[in-house]
Nucleic acid binder design. Structure first.
Lengths: 352, 352
DNA sequence: GCTACTAAATGGAACGTTCCAATAAATCAA
DNA sequence: TTGATTTATTGGAACGTTCCATTTAGTAGC
C-alpha cells in the first residue's frame, strides 16, 4: 500500500532497517552492497510503492538520461519515421527520448526548446521548423548543450547535420527523366525559405545542365509542400505556353497532388506526363500508378543521428561531423515508358 | 557570456546585487517586487545565460508542469493526429506535453511509463499498446497519478477513457452496406486482443442481426491491421466457397490493402466488391476510388482527452467520466452504386 | 592480542530551487 | 515624535537524491 505522501529513500531505509546511503547504493546497482542486504532493500522498495525521483538525483548527478527530440511535423509519416528510428537507438542505450512537436511554428519551437532545457536534457535532436531564425539556437549553443540537426539544416550554423543527399537525389531523378526522353522539365513545390529546397533544386538544375537541357527548359514552380500545393503546381505548369512533359516534385505529397490533378484532366500520370516524387513514403509504393521516388531511409537517418548524439554526450563535445545519407531512386510506374523509343516497353527490366 | 558551469539564481543575485529570494520571486512573476528591481534582475538573468532548473524547483513545488503522452504507434497518422490535438490544448494551458512512443510493445511501454513517472509528470495520457496486461497501470494508480486512456481501453480498468463510438461507427457502416443491397458481408482485419476490435465487430454483428442478415452470412476474417493484412483478408474471403460481396474493414489501412488486392485480381473496388474503412485518415479521400470510411475526429478526441486531464489535475482527482466521441460515416466511392436497383443477382444464392 | 587490511554500511554536506518567517524601509495616524 | 501598517527584501530550512569521508565489522598475518 502506498501512502498518500510520496515515499522517499528514507522511508525505504526505515522499512529495511538500513541507512539512506545504502538504499541509494542499491538503487544504483552498486556492487558494494551485500546481496542479502540488497534484496532486503529491494523488497522494501516494492512494499512502499517507491518511485525514483530523477529530478532530485539530477541535482547532484552531472548528466540526466533524457534527450529531447524536436520535430517540425509529427503528422508527416516521413518525420515520424525519423523519430522512431532514433528511439530504437536510444532505448538500447538506456536513455529516454522525449518527443515534442513544433507544428512548423518557430514560436512554438522556441517554447519547446526552452522547456526541454529547463527539464535538463542531456542533448537535443532537432528537425527545425520552417522559418527558424539563425539565432534561435545561440542560447543553447552557449549553454554547451549538444545539438544535432536532422533532415533539415539552418543556413549558417555550426551545428552538425544528419540529412539525406538531397542534391544527388534530385540529380538522379532528373537524369532518369531526361534519360526517358523528356526535354522540357519542371521542378514542383517548396519555397526558398528551406535549405532543403535549394539543395534539391540545385540537383535538378545540375542534371539539366550536364545532360544538355537548356536553362529555359528547366522550369520552376514554387508552391506548398502538400497535395494541394501539387495540384496548384500542375495547373500552373499546364497553363504555360509551352508546357513541360515531366516534373520532379519537392516531395511525395506534392507528387500525389500533381497526379491527382492530372487524373482530373483525364491525363494519365506516366504516359501523358511523368512524375517523380521525393522521400519515398510508404504510400508511394501503393499509389495508382505507383510513384517513382527518391528513397531517403528516414528511420536510418534517425538512427544515425541518435548515434552521433550519443557520441557527443559521451565525449562531452558539442561538435561532430555532418553525415549525408545515401539516397536511391526507386523506379516505379509514374514515369511511364521510354519516350525516345516508343516501341520499347519498359517492363521491370533495365533503367537509366 | 555564459560560464562553463551552469548559472544558478545565486549567480544572478550577485550580478544584480539582490538576494536569491528576490531572484526567485522575479522568476515566478511575483508582484511583490519593485518593478525597477525586477528589471534589474531580468537583465542579470539575460547576462549570465541562466537556464531555469525545473528539477530543483519541483523538489519543493507540489506539481510539475509536464504531462506525458504515451502513444502506441506514432507512425500511424491516426495516432499522430491524436497527439497533435492534445498538444494544442496543453500548450495554451502552459503545460508541456512530452510524447513517447511504445511501438505497440508492452515491455517498452512499461519502461516509458516508469521513466515518465520518475520524471515527475503531473499526469499521463495513454493509448495503450496491444497486449498490455491489466495490471500494468496498478502501480501508477496507487501512486495517485491522474491517467486517461485515449482511443483504446483496457478490459477491466477504472481509468477514464476518451474514445470514439466504435460500435456505432461499425453499425452505421454495415447498415450502409446492407442498404446498398449486400446480403453476404465480412469483417476484415484486427484481432481479439484489442478491445476496439470487439467493439467494432459488435457493431457489425448487431447491424447484420437487426437488418435481417443471417449469422452465417456475417463472416469474420481476422488479420493484421495493416495494408498487408488487408490483402491477406481479401484473398481469404474470395477463396471461400460462397464469397462475400462487401467488407467492413477494421481500419483504413486494411481497407487500402483489400482494394489493392482487388485491383490485382482485376476487380473494381466499389462495383465488384464494396469496401468500407474505419478512421477516415487523410489518405482515404484521395484514394482511387475514394474510400468510404467512418470518421472519428482523432484530433478532437485528443483535445477532449487533454481537457479531461487538465480538470483532473486541477481538482486533484484520479477519476473522471468516460467520453465517447461522435462518429460519422463519410460516403465516397468505394461502395459503388446501389446493388438492389441495378440487378437482382447479388452474388450466388441470396434469398433473404 | 595487536596491527593491517578489506568489505560493508553510514552520516553529512552538497545540488538549485521555493516558501515561510523575519527584517528593513517607507508611509501613515495620532 | 512614536507606534502601527504597509511595502520590499531577505535568510534559512526544506525538498530527495548522490558522493565523499568515515566508521564499523570482519578477516588475516604475525
Amino acid at each position: 500500500m502506498a501512502n498518500r505522501a510520496k515515499a522517499t529513500i528514507f522511508d525505504i531505509a526505515r522499512e529495511a532497517g538500513v541507512s539512506k546511503s545504502t538504499v541509494s547504493l542499491v538503487l544504483q546497482g552498486s556492487g558494494l552492497i551485500r546481496p542479502e542486504t540488497a534484496s532486503k532493500v529491494r523488497k522494501a522498495i516494492e512494499d512502499v510503492g517507491y518511485v525514483y525521483n530523477r529530478g532530485a538525483a539530477n541535482l547532484r548527478k552531472a548528466h540526466s538520461n533524457v534527450i529531447g527530440m524536436v520535430i517540425n511535423d509529427l503528422t508527416n509519416p516521413f518525420f515520424a519515421e525519423l523519430a522512431v528510428g532514433m528511439e530504437r537507438v536510444f532505448q538500447s542505450a538506456g536513455i529516454v527520448p522525449f518527443i515534442a512537436n513544433t507544428a512548423e511554428n518557430p514560436v512554438r519551437q522556441e517554447e519547446v526548446l526552452k522547456s526541454l532545457m529547463e527539464q535538463g536534457v542531456a542533448g537535443l535532436i532537432v528537425s527545425p521548423a520552417r522559418g527558424t531564425t539563425p539565432g534561435a539556437f545561440r542560447r543553447i549553443e552557449t549553454a554547451g548543450l549538444p545539438v544535432v540537426f536532422a533532415m533539415r539544416r539552418l543556413p549558417e550554423s555550426r551545428i552538425p547535420v544528419i540529412a539525406p543527399d538531397n542534391h544527388r537525389g534530385a540529380y538522379l531523378a532528373t537524369a532518369h527523366l531526361i534519360g526517358k526522353g523528356h526535354r522540357r522539365l519542371v521542378f514542383f513545390g517548396g519555397s526558398s525559405d528551406l535549405v532543403v529546397y535549394h539543395e534539391r533544386l540545385g540537383g535538378f538544375r545540375e542534371a539539366c545542365e550536364t545532360q544538355g537541357i537548356a536553362a529555359r527548359d528547366a522550369l520552376v514552380v514554387e508552391g506548398e509542400t502538400s497535395r494541394r500545393g501539387g495540384i496548384a503546381c500542375l495547373e500552373t505548369a499546364l497553363a504555360m505556353a509551352e508546357p513541360p512533359t515531366a516534373a520532379l516534385c519537392f516531395n511525395d505529397a506534392v507528387a500525389f497532388g500533381a497526379m491527382l490533378a492530372l487524373r482530373k484532366r483525364r491525363l494519365e500520370p506516366g504516359t501523358d506526363f511523368a512524375i517523380v516524387g521525393f522521400d519515398d513514403v510508404a504510400e508511394a509504393e501503393h499509389y495508382m500508378p505507383a510513384l517513382t521516388s527518391v528513397a531517403v531511409d528516414s528511420a536510418g537517418l534517425g538512427e544515425r543521428a541518435a548515434h552521433v548524439m550519443l557520441k557527443m554526450i559521451q565525449s562531452r563535445t558539442t561538435r561532430a561531423e555532418d553525415h549525408i545519407g545515401a539516397v536511391n531512386l526507386v523506379v516505379r510506374e509514374s514515369c511511364g515508358p521510354d519516350r525516345r523509343t516508343r516501341n520499347r516497353t519498359a517492363g521491370s527490366g533495365s533503367m537509366n
